[in-house]
Amino acid sequence: MRKFALGLAALAIVGGTLTGCSSAATSASSSPEQAAEKLKNQTITLVVPFDPGGGYDAYARMLAPKLGDELGATVIVENKPGAGGILATNEVVHGKPDGKTLVLLNGPGHLGAAIAKTNGVRYDAKTMSYIGQISSEPDVLVTSKSSSIASADDISGKRFAATGPGSNEYIDAIVLNQQLGMQNQVVTGFKSSNEASLNVIQGNVDLHSRSLGSQQPGINAGDLKPILVIGENTGAKEIEGVDNLLDVVNDDQKELATLHTKLISSGRLIAAPPGIDPGTLQVIREAFEKVMTDEAFVKAAADSGRPVHYASGDDVQKLVNDVMGSPQEYVDLITKAYSG
């Protein structure tokens, strides 16, 4: 009996001393210079709410060392997958707004979940401190190269592939159904969007919409053919001359199509917790801008198949406010895309 009581007692003693020592340092509002000084030689964590290996992870790891150089700090990437990104976002939002925690968000997923007020979202997307946009690319709807589908006019009655409700590809399918007045079935349950894509190539299912970057290899290999672009066309050669959603919808759907274009174009965002001190926010935003406007960085990124697209923190904030203030019709549509 004595022995394990001792074990607990030892832990309690160590614990007691430590609680005594730890006191949260509170920081008052500071000037950009002070803020910059505060971040020097610190470790900044860039949280990626997804598994290592995906596009989000790749962008984060590309950005981290450069951002660290600009800030004179060490930026480390931390993967925290879970609940489609909501888990990590919740954590960051409720973390300390000291500039030492940043998060790379999947814009459409982040905002979509916030609009739909899906289960588990414990934050207000508008209150977060946005640092800026690192990439933005349209979604591309594709079909197999041997398919009879040639353009957006032929897709009615065909089937969409998607991983599951709430995924970008599922949202696209639901939005297309509504905007083009179709009742297409969405086949869900694929383990990954790559697997869904393979089933399109095999001809088991007809249509699949996901980001341009993910579709490019399949299109370049000649296995897939692009049918429709959803979002702002960035001018990639693979989707030259392909219809855009905005061109094919009826006039009465234009407003929603524009909103959806905005949602998709929100791309990948860097953000900090709400309530960050303005000086610190400015320092990080400026450092981010410097990295994103560095030609060598932009070129290296494009060469590695991860093209960047910069938008300032202010612009992102505006976009978020626009999307979050969507009319009820769009809110209902997105909510439907989350409820399956």
Binding site: D51, P52, G53, G54, G55, D57, A58, S192, N194, E195, S197, L198, I201, P217, G218, A221, D223
Partner: peptide, 15 residues
């Protein structure tokens, strides 16, 4: 063959 990775590690390798 098709850029379909089986599992997380192959996804990184595909990247």
């Amino acid at each position: 063959a098709f850029g379909v990775p089986s599992g997380a590690s192959m996804a990184v390798l595909l990247g």
